[in-house]
Design a protein around this nucleic acid. Structure first.
Length: 425
RNA sequence: GUGAACGUAGCUCAGUCGGUAGAGCACUGGAUUGUGGCUCCAGCGGUCGCGGGUUCGAAUCCCGUCGUUCACCCCA
C-alpha cells in the first residue's frame, strides 16, 4: 500500500461541521469593518521576498527563520505571506492610493504562513483579520483601530480579553531611549542571561520580554520608554488614551509590550485572552509611520492590527457553548419502496429549485433507515412517498418534532415546506 | 531550533509480568404488515505511526525517525 499522506505539519483541514461558526465570525467581522469605513483588500498569497525582508525587518524572527521562501521558475525569490501589513502597504503604493482622500482604510481576511513549531493556537498556516489605515498621523485613528478590534470581540461575545498598550516612540526619540536602555543593560550585564546579552546588542527593547527571574528583576528598574518620549509622541500617546476612554475601552499601560515587527512607531497594543494558555495574544497591532517609505513608497503614516481567527475560535469555544451550528436540510424525502424512488428524486429536485434545502436517500435504505437519516440529519419535515400517495398525487408530510402526519396534495405539501424555508431565513 | 509527554478501529480510549488485539461512540442491518429519536441484537471496521534492534515470541522492552500535544523562543 502507498504511504499515507497527511496534512503538512502545523496545518489543518476545516471540515463542514466547523464551517458554520467560522462563517459567523467572518460575517461579524465584515459587518464591523464595513461600519467603521474600511474597504476589503485582497492581495496575492505570495510576494517578492524583498517586500517582507525590507518591510517587516531583517532582524525580526519572521524574516530570519519563519518564512516559506522559494525560488520560482524564473529564478525570482518569492515568499508566502507571513503577515498582512507589508502587502497592504505595497498595494497602497502600487495603486497610487495616496491620491485618494486620506486616510485610506482597508481590511482583510487572509491566510498567513510561518514556519514555526506548532502548539496550542499556533499554526504554520493560519487566518488573520486585519485593518490598515494609511495616510494619517491622527491619534484618533490609532484609537479607532483599537476600537474596531474591541467592537469585533464584543460583538462575537469574546469576554475576558485585556487590552495592553504602549508607545514605541519615533525616529527622534527612539534612538535616545535605545542608547539609554543599552547603557543601563551594559551596567547590569552581570545579572542578565546570555540571551539578553545578545538582545542588548540587537534590539535592547526585547530584554523586557525575558522571563528569566534575574532579568525580570533587573528590568524592573530599567528606564521606561514612556519617560523618554519626545513632545510629539507624548502628546500623541495622551490623545490615544483619551480616545480609548471616549469609547469606553479599558486598557492597561504595559511598558514591556514590545511587538515583533520592526516597523512599529508610537502606539503598539495587544489584546490578550486569559483562556488561551501560552499563546495568549488574540490580536495586536500599532502605528507604522516609516513602513511605506521603507518599501519604496512616499513617506506615509499608517496604523492597523491583525487578529488570529483560530485564536478567536479557540477562545470562543472555551468561553461560550451557544455558538452557531451546522444547519441540516429542512426536508427529507422518503421513498417507501423502490418504485417510489424516481418520484422522490423528482420531488427533491422541485423543492431544491424552489429554494428548499432538501435531501434524500442514495443508499437504497429501507423506509425505517430513511426515517433514521431524516431524524439524524435534523430535518424538520419528512415527505413520505409510497404507492398510496403517488396514486393519489399526494404526499405524507410528517413534522419530525411533533410526530404529526398529514396526507396532503403534493402541491400543498410543497407550499408548506417552501414557506417554512422562507421563514427560517 | 530546544525540552517533555503521547502515537492501538473514523472518534475517545483499555490492553496486567512480553504469548500475534478489545470496549464505547459512529456507520450498516434487524427486533412480522409503510415511519426517526429510547432500548436490545448482529454486522462492518485495526500494516498497534514508520524503520531497525533484543527475544523462541514485541502493541508491550531498547534505539532511530515522523507526527501530535504542551512548553521555551516568538507571534496571531
Amino acid at each position: 500500500m502507498a504511504e499515507k499522506i497527511t496534512a503538512p505539519k502545523g496545518t489543518y483541514d476545516i471540515l463542514p461541521d466547523q464551517q458554520a461558526v467560522r462563517r459567523w465570525v467572518v460575517a461579524c467581522a465584515e459587518d464591523v469593518f464595513q461600519r467603521y469605513g474600511y474597504g476589503r483588500l485582497d492581495t496575492p498569497i505570495f510576494e517578492e521576498t524583498a517586500l517582507f525582508a525590507r518591510g517587516v525587518g531583517e532582524s525580526t524572527d519572521i524574516v530570519r527563520k519563519e518564512m516559506y521562501t522559494f525560488t520560482d521558475l524564473g529564478g525570482r525569490s518569492m515568499t508566502l505571506r507571513p503577515e498582512g501589513t507589508a502587502p497592504a502597504a505595497r498595494a497602497y503604493v502600487e495603486h497610487g492610493m495616496r491620491t485618494l482622500p486620506q486616510p485610506v482604510k482597508l481590511w482583510y481576511h487572509w491566510p498567513m504562513f510561518r514556519y514555526e513549531s506548532p502548539q496550542s493556537g499556533r499554526y504554520r498556516q493560519h487566518y488573520q483579520f486585519g485593518v490598515e489605515a494609511f495616510g494619517s498621523t491622527s491619534p484618533a485613528l490609532d484609537a479607532e483601530a483599537i476600537g474596531v478590534l474591541a467592537a469585533l470581540y464584543r460583538e462575537i461575545g469574546l469576554a475576558q480579553v485585556e487590552l495592553r498598550i504602549n508607545s514605541m516612540g519615533c525616529r527622534q526619540c527612539r534612538p535616545t531611549y535605545s542608547d539609554e536602555l543599552r547603557a543601563f543593560l551594559i551596567d547590569h550585564r552581570a545579572d542578565l542571561c546570555t540571551e539578553c546579552h545578545e538582545r542588548t546588542r540587537l534590539n535592547p527593547l526585547r530584554t523586557f520580554d525575558c522571563k528569566v527571574p534575574g532579568c525580570v528583576r533587573v528590568m524592573e528598574s530599567a528606564p521606561r520608554f514612556t519617560e523618554y518620549l519626545c513632545e510629539n509622541c507624548e502628546g500623541h500617546h495622551t490623545v490615544v488614551r483619551d480616545h480609548l476612554v471616549v469609547q469606553g475601552i479599558e486598557y492597561v499601560e504595559d511598558h514591556r509590550l514590545v511587538r515583533g515587527m520592526d516597523y512599529y512607531t508610537r502606539t503598539t497594543f495587544e489584546f490578550q485572552s486569559a483562556v488561551l494558555g501560552a499563546q495568549s495574544g488574540v490580536g495586536g497591532g500599532g502605528r507604522y509611520d516609516d513602513l511605506v517609505e521603507s518599501i519604496g513608497g512616499p513617506p506615509t503614516p499608517g496604523v492597523g492590527f491583525g487578529t488570529g481567527v483560530e485564536r478567536i475560535l479557540l477562545a470562543l469555544s472555551r468561553s461560550r457553548d451557544d455558538l452557531p451550528g451546522t444547519r441540516g436540510p429542512l426536508a427529507y424525502v422518503v421513498a417507501v419502496n423502490d418504485s417510489a424512488r424516481r418520484e422522490a428524486f423528482a420531488l427533491v429536485h422541485e423543492l431544491r429549485s424552489r429554494g428548499v434545502a432538501a435531501e434524500l436517500d442514495y443508499a437504497s435504505r429501507s423506509l425505517k433507515g430513511q426515517m433514521k437519516q431524516a431524524g439524524k440529519g435534523g430535518a424538520r419535515f419528512a415527505l413520505i412517498l409510497g404507492d398510496e400517495e403517488t396514486a393519489a398525487g399526494e404526499v405524507t408530510l410528517k413534522d419530525m418534532a411533533t410526530g404529526e402526519e398529514r396526507r396532503l396534495p403534493r402541491t400543498e405539501a410543497t407550499e408548506v415546506v417552501v414557506k417554512a424555508e422562507v421563514s427560517a431565513e
